[in-house]
Write a protein that binds this DNA or RNA. Structure first.
Lengths: 231, 231
DNA sequence: AGTGTTAAAAACAAGCCGGACTGATTAAAT
DNA sequence: ATTTAATCAGTCCGGCTTGTTTTTAACACT
């Protein structure tokens, strides 16, 4: 599994007992991860605001006391869970992108990238992440937790996309525009309440977006640049 | 009429000489509206999940007992507040659109429509509405309250846009596409966390979107329809 | 084994929210 | 003037959530 930017050193404060990772430390780390997985599961099922420490504990199959041992307060639990979620988000996206067959090239590859992103956006992980962003508007604590990961996430996506579409990476402004258009439109689609005929409309929008991506870079190669320059 | 299911706009309890409307009824209606305004204000300031009946009451300047007289339970208060918010949303959008000067025509008018929509989306009312939508994922009660207004809202927007851009109204599919693209992209922009250089990127995206709208209908007039047809 | 350390479980205390109830005050309606 | 409706202030209870404390169980080391 990926991530590991934070969780590893739980029993790092090893006693004089030596170098080998004690059995208890391993066990402890495992229950820690179980708790974090349970926390995210609760986010998905209950929604951020309805998550209580008791529910996380029971969902993880541990007692509240055990959980309090690992996370002395709810704040610390949430913080750890958000970081964990962040790791899983990055992992999910990079994995989906990495699974695009190398045989695809050109327009097919770009289309596959959009589909992969769409899969990512419609998954539970992103749904929860989005909920956290919304909730953070009036939750300063959560806000400060998220601010770090948001920038990291944006940079990571840009980087990944740069690797995925090497032919576009050095297009500068135009690359940013393409990514912003994709991001906004697809996140908008993911969040929009399209009440009637949703399937067809989404399909058509994805198709439309794919065409626009091609257009942006085709235009770049030809001449008609002026219209959406940055004034 | 779509909105106005329960009260009139702001001065609903107009003090004109109503024989049939008793003084007390008017006064009662006024405090009722004060409470609903306070509820929405609390939504804006505190966020949906942090709203308590006590805070709404104190924010409205009435006692809890008085509020319970109007809204016997929190559920009924929320329900009324959501309907009230829905009315205000429609009012806000139609007003912003109506304020577009009649002297504007063609592309200028379309651009003004996009700007008006953007103003609408970045206002407090929509922010709160969006929060409610997100919260409704795991709040069945709220969900059922919202479902009604969502469809009404979508229809109303379509209708309003049809009046605003009469030249497009009978374009059928293409009109739907244009509206979906605009809706998704702009709502995505409103919700997206663009951490760096936000202003410039938003400006550019609005510009880009405007161009795409023109393009959609220009193409319709010429020939190259095939690419984003509904296959 | 026996002792000490640590994870885990269970019991406890405190706070907040929503709702019910009461009694008093004000003002309109008759 | 009497009646009725609206408003207000205060109290109390039940439920839920959090965090602390106490108790039990598991393991490690000599």
């Amino acid at each position: 599994m990926a991530g590991k930017t934070h969780n590893g050193p739980k029993g790092a404060a090893g006693e004089q007992s030596g170098e080998d990772v004690s059995w208890q430390a391993q066990k402890s780390a495992m229950t820690r991860d179980r708790i974090l997985d349970a926390a995210i599961h609760c986010f998905v099922v209950l929604g951020y605001t309805n998550v209580t420490t008791a529910k996380v504990a029971s969902s993880a199959g541990v007692s509240r006391g055990a959980m309090l041992h690992h996370f002395p307060s709810k704040t610390e639990l949430i913080q750890a869970a958000v970081e964990y979620l962040h790791d899983k988000l990055l992992e999910d996206y990079t994995e989906k992108v990495a699974n695009i067959p190398a045989t695809l090239t050109g327009a097919d590859r770009r289309r596959a990238g959009i589909d992969a992103y769409w899969d990512h956006l419609t998954g539970d992980l992103f749904t929860v992440y989005n909920e956290l962003c919304v909730a953070s508007r009036t939750d300063p604590e959560l806000r400060s937790i998220l601010e770090n990961s948001q920038q990291l996430f944006e940079e990571h996506i840009r980087e990944t996309n740069g690797e995925l579409f090497t032919e576009w990476r050095d297009r500068g402004d135009r690359f940013t525009l393409a990514m912003d258009v994709t991001k906004c439109m697809m996140e908008g689609m993911a969040g929009a309440q399209l009440m009637i005929n949703r399937e067809a409309r989404v399909k058509r929008l994805l198709h439309y977006l794919t065409d626009r991506m091609e257009e942006i870079f085709e235009e770049g190669e030809s001449s008609a640049i002026g219209r959406h320059s940055n004034d």
